[in-house]
Design a binder for these strands. Sequence first.
DNA 1: TCAAAAGTGTTCTAGATACACCCATGT
DNA 2: ACATGGGTGTATCTAGAACACTTTTGA
Lengths: 229, 229
Amino acid sequence: MDINSYKSHRKVLAAVDCIIFGFDGNQLKALLIKRGFEPHKGRWSLMGGFIHDDEDADRAAVRVLNKLTGMDNIYMEQLHTFSQVDRDSAGRVISIAYFALINIADYSEQLQAEHEARWFELSQLPDLVFDHTAMVLKAQESLREKVARQPIGFELLPSKFTLPQLQSLYEAIYETSLDTRNFSKRILALGVLNKLDEKEKKNSRRGAFYYVFDSIKYKSLETNGVRFI
Amino acid sequence: MDINSYKSHRKVLAAVDCIIFGFDGNQLKALLIKRGFEPHKGRWSLMGGFIHDDEDADRAAVRVLNKLTGMDNIYMEQLHTFSQVDRDSAGRVISIAYFALINIADYSEQLQAEHEARWFELSQLPDLVFDHTAMVLKAQESLREKVARQPIGFELLPSKFTLPQLQSLYEAIYETSLDTRNFSKRILALGVLNKLDEKEKKNSRRGAFYYVFDSIKYKSLETNGVRFI
DNA sequence: TCAAAAGTGTTCTAGATACACCCATGT
DNA sequence: ACATGGGTGTATCTAGAACACTTTTGA
């Protein structure tokens, strides 16, 4: 704080916007809504909301996400604050952007309909209001950095998943292709996956074994940080 | 944005606070000021200020930093936004924190006196107002992550510097000690340093050669990212 | 029996680490 | 001559990259 009186400074509206990532087994996607009010009513937008008097930005982001998805305990982290003077055409609003990772299959069709929400491939985003496109791009960049060092990629998958699914998630995030042998070696060497007896049979005749986390080792990786890719 | 009218939401004050890192050749330090106004007048604090109507947070941070140091073109990046409801005892203020890297030798004694500013070792910070201690800790963490992948460590040094100085900078940032041979091998292998004929003779009888960046290769590292450590 | 995805091992290479002595110079 | 910090090379180890075939099973 510099100059004396707090009173001599104009206040601003403070909002949060959520970049919600999901993975459909194949593509990395972002959840967008049709904006329900002016300005730009009817255009595609990130889900967002103003910060209330009695909550900080983190709680506002959780509230906003919960409103759209009905979900709690979602992985979410603050991304960046966007504060261009004219970013919102309706007045001075600074927005604290968050990104969230959810298991796309858990997302209720009903809520989706209610909010006119839709999953978009990142390579095929529609025109977005304000600076929301920049937010999504920045979130994607940050996701790539994060997911290489913290075990958060799993947040995008169901609790049981197969190695081919996990590999395909990493391939989608990095827009690259990985060697199956090296991938499974490295991931299994981390010792955070437990193999189940059960197989997933939708994708192949042979079927692929399901895995789940060893949540104890998983936590220790979370605090220490590791190279996943 | 969620619920309709922008008008139904209370506005907040928006500020920036700067964590200013400097390196004295030995220790990594942060620049703090004696707060000149209430609340908490006279206590140690980060340099900060409110965001003006006609500027975004980045520009506010540059302005605030310039006011304290007289410097321009300083490396600075947004760190995190702090928005706890009661973080500022004088009212609702959200603060967008930035960290800056400066060459400590460039910082004018005169301005230091004017603002009652002082460099503090990170391990010996005084009590700080509000959540400023948390800001410094987060900045330190972020600096460590950043400096390993981007060639920003150099911002803390004079334009001519010696290998022992550079090594000692990395040792200070990571609070570790590095092998001299391996360090010089790796750094020189990056090909971003040019050796001068001149020697720095203050620290030893023999003297250590000065180096400067090869700014062209340096830029390409900046965009691509590399492992420095 | 065949199509389609799952699963698995070895070699090679490059980068990281460990490690110790001589050099230059001012006093 | 000696004390102090500067500068350099080699051997070893480890993690990552490259690479192709066999297995399973439903249709």
